[in-house]
């Protein structure tokens, strides 16, 4: 037993100061009272003033001293900003705040609109240089879209799921399926086929079209529910209501509700990630275009 002596320090009687930590309850947009917004604002303002107050000949472009300065800053920032993807995956033991990184990423990224555009001197054309600028703008705009999603979706996501986890939502659907399977045992072949449709032809996330449109009326469970409801209504009208069918209808309705909640959940979770499918690949393309832009500038002066 003694061979695996605990490596931890026991109580010492000394007050060991706890590692400093950020206990401020503020989001990434106003991290440290929006410190990075101010930094980014000042950088943009300085760049703008420098651009307006200088008058190089023949005109503003990437080749003037201001152009080089802005270009160097912009390129450095692009590389640094793209490293967020690495930073968030390397945790380690040292102090850092990913929230601070995100905050800087957002505001400095926005300031690139000013820096990058001033660097071009508004000389845009159909070439690799403008391609880099255009890709940068796409990245920034997709980032803006991401921020707007981050600002609005979490609250709805939380409200939709309540205290239920995704795992539990899927489990609830499986439980309903089991109950339905049991309840369907005494049914005739026609009705059982409808239940089977709900069990076998129901896709929780649905097809791409269903996911995009949010319309799941052609899904197995919805069809089964419509058909069974029809039969229950018909039975009631004829005065011969079938309790077993009503039970099935009840279960199908519950499953439909559970499906709706799960689909909303998945949809919002997808929204929170969807923009990254533009943001990240275009960033990679941007880095390549940036590289080509710099090489070509120096090679084909």
């Amino acid at each position: 037993m003694a061979s695996t002596a605990p490596t931890r320090k026991a109580m010492t009687g000394k007050a060991v100061t706890r590692a400093p930590r950020d206990t401020a309850h503020e989001g990434f947009l106003n991290h440290r009272r929006a410190r990075w917004a101010k930094v980014a604002g000042i950088i943009s303002l300085v760049a703008l003033l420098a651009y307006m107050l200088t008058d190089p000949t023949p005109r503003h472009n990437g080749g003037t001293w201001l152009g080089y300065t802005l270009g160097s800053i912009g390129a450095g920032m692009i590389v640094w900003l793209s490293l967020l993807g690495v930073r968030k995956r390397v945790i380690g033991a040292r102090p850092f705040s990913l929230k601070g990184w995100t905050s800087a990423h957002v505001y400095l990224g926005l300031s690139l609109i000013v820096i990058g555009t001033l660097h071009t001197g508004f000389q845009l054309g159909w070439n690799v240089h403008t391609l880099a600028w255009a890709l940068m703008m796409i990245v920034i705009l997709s980032g803006l879209w991401g921020i707007s999603l981050y600002a609005t979706v979490p609250e709805r996501l939380s409200a939709n799921r309540g205290e239920v986890t995704q795992q539990q939502m899927l489990e609830a659907i499986r439980t309903l399926d089991r109950q339905m399977d049991l309840a369907a045992q005494p049914l005739g072949a026609d009705d059982a086929a409808l239940v089977r449709m709900s069990l076998e032809q129901c896709r929780i996330a649905g097809s791409l079209g269903q996911r995009l449109s949010g319309n799941y009326t052609s899904d197995g469970n919805a069809l089964a529910l419509a058909a069974i409801s029809e039969k229950v209504m018909a039975g009631m009208r004829s005065g011969r209501s079938d309790e077993r069918l009503q039970q099935i209808q009840f279960l199908l309705e519950r499953k439909e509700a559970a499906l709706a909640q799960t689909r909303r959940h998945i949809r919002m979770k997808a929204q929170l990630e969807l923009w990254l499918y533009i943001h990240v690949p275009v960033t990679v393309a941007l880095l390549a275009a940036l590289f080509a832009h710099i090489i070509s500038v120096f090679l084909y002066w």
Partner: peptide
């Protein structure tokens, strides 16, 4: 023992 304090808090990108 980690200088940076709780990793869960450090690693939260939005400050939640």
């Amino acid at each position: 023992g980690q200088e940076g304090g709780p990793a869960c808090v450090r690693a939260c990108p939005t400050g939640a």
